[in-house]
């Protein structure tokens, strides 16, 4: 049953009961390995999910600091970008835009950018298109369309009509234009 409307959300004692202890999960989560211990990520995620919006900028700063670590792994970057998709803002855009040029990080970066509101993220995706090709380019076109970025129409029309682009990219541009035609301006 739902609690009465006026009562505060009840704490759930089970949520953190089996979380593994790590010295600094915010650093450790950047070094996640697939199939390895993910308890640092669990700790960070739980803290983030409970963070009210006024605390997001500080959380975002900590995520970006971890993302910038030289020893960040693919799994770690993917996790951090998934968290940035939840709390990220324009503050994250420069770092994520840089990762769009990294073939090993472009998917994770786009995952975050698609969810981050604001013109800065839209601009990063539009500009990022020049750095990618093939499948990654089709995905980026999709993100632009999902965001309803109607200012990308001219860009997409050029891609759709460019015979040097592979079919997968031209078709994605065509679908994006169709999507944007019905999107709210």
């Amino acid at each position: 049953m739902c609690a009465a409307a006026s009562s505060p959300p009840a704490a759930n004692p089970d949520r953190k009961s089996n979380a593994g202890a790590t010295p600094d999960p915010w650093e450790a989560c950047a070094r996640l390995e697939y199939g390895g211990d993910r308890s640092p990520a669990w700790s960070v995620r739980e803290e983030l999910l409970a963070t009210p919006p006024e605390g997001w900028p500080a959380a975002e700063t900590r995520l970006l600091k971890s993302l910038a670590r030289a020893d960040a792994t693919a799994a770690g970057r993917a996790f951090l970008c998934q968290m940035l998709a939840l709390v990220g803002s324009a503050q994250s855009v420069p770092a994520l835009a840089a990762l769009l040029k990294d073939v090993d990080a472009v998917e994770s970066a786009r995952y975050a950018l698609e969810a981050i509101p604001g013109a800065e993220a839209s601009a990063a995706l539009r500009e990022g298109i020049a750095a990618v090709s093939g499948s990654a380019k089709a995905g980026m076109i999709g993100s632009i369309a999902i965001r309803g970025d109607t200012s990308a129409r001219y860009l997409l029309a050029g891609i759709k009509g460019n015979p040097s682009e592979p079919a997968i990219v031209r078709e994605a541009a065509g679908r994006a234009l169709e999507h944007l035609a019905t999107a709210k301006a």
Partner: peptide, 19 residues
């Protein structure tokens, strides 16, 4: 609840998109 709203959808891995 802005975070809850962000959880209504998610980006898809390339080349897939909900368009």
């Amino acid at each position: 609840d802005a975070m809850a709203n962000r959880l209504r959808g998610r980006a898809m891995r390339s080349p897939w998109a909900l368009i």
